[in-house]
Design a protein around this nucleic acid. Structure first.
Length: 260
DNA sequence: TCATTTGTTTCATG
DNA sequence: ACATGAAACAAATG
């Protein structure tokens, strides 16, 4: 579930609480999500402080003077800043302790995330084929990439090597707003449709960020608050349907979103 | 008990 | 050879 907007909220959270505080030690509660060894992580972080946060697609990056802590939340997860003498958050994988007796926990209830340290974050993104961030990509690049792509429009939006940050949930919202069927072949889209799609991607993601990535707070004409089978379409009298696209659940309004 | 959840990886297909 | 889609995988919940 943590897609671009959710990760961005966590980035803002980390910026607010975790910057410019000396790291004292790292507490390991679950090894499952560690891509770097404990030894490596504990070698590079304690004694340092985070000076900058970054986000690319669904990845969150905390920078120290010479290294980068790279976090990915998989399908569940978030950060939690807490007092050391308080309760350790449930499902915390690691806790980064600071000199001020507070700590930042990486929480992953389903343990499908990633935690690693690297000294070259650009190389990391290149190795993992993470394309330009959905909010940083410019319009002409988007048009170029999508006009070369084949297959369904939804799989194109979710292709992290093409454009990063859009997952299953926000792809549904973007397509609903555009009145496009997820299985419509991307090659059939006109330049004007692609251009409109680009603008909608930005609008939806930015709107979600503005609402703290909380689907319930999104505008009334958005799909997300009604993303369940049989719900009323927020834009017509139709009922929301659940269909399978790319072996994933897609929620669409069959009246608004027809293949052309 | 098992279907369901999702990003990523892997395998099969065209 | 390459791109695309389908399926497997991880873990935990209800």
């Amino acid at each position: 579930m943590p897609e671009l907007p959710d990760v961005e909220i966590n980035r803002q959270y980390a910026s607010k609480y975790a910057l410019n505080k000396k790291i004292t030690n790292i507490e390991y509660l679950d090894d499952q999500v560690l891509e770097s060894s404990k030894q490596i992580i504990s070698k590079h972080l304690p004694g340092q402080q985070f000076t900058e946060t970054r986000r690319k697609g669904k990845y969150l990056v905390l920078k120290t003077s010479e290294h980068f802590l790279v976090l990915h939340f998989g399908m569940t997860g978030n950060l939690k800043y807490f007092k050391e003498n308080g309760t350790l958050p449930e499902y915390a994988s690691i806790a980064i302790h600071f000199e001020n007796e507070h700590a930042l926990a990486y929480i992953a209830p389903r343990k499908l995330g990633k935690i690693l340290v690297t000294d070259d974050v650009d190389a990391f993104f290149e190795e993992h084929e993470i394309g330009e961030d959905a909010l940083k990509m410019d319009g002409s690049k988007f048009m170029e990439l999508l006009s070369e792509k084949r297959g369904g429009v939804k799989s194109a939006l979710m292709d992290q090597s093409l454009i990063s940050g859009i997952g299953n949930v926000y792809a549904d919202e973007i397509l609903f707003q555009e009145k496009l069927h997820p299985k419509q072949d991307v090659g059939t889209l006109t330049d004007s449709q692609l251009s409109s799609l680009y603008n909608t991607i930005r609008r939806v993601l930015k709107t979600a960020i503005r609402h703290q990535a909380n689907p319930k707070d999104l505008p009334k004409n958005y799909l997300l608050p009604h993303r369940e089978e049989g719900a009323d379409c927020p834009q017509c009298s139709g009922k929301i349907e659940k269909i399978t696209v790319n072996s994933r659940s897609s929620y669409i309004c069959p009246d608004c979103q027809k293949i052309k």
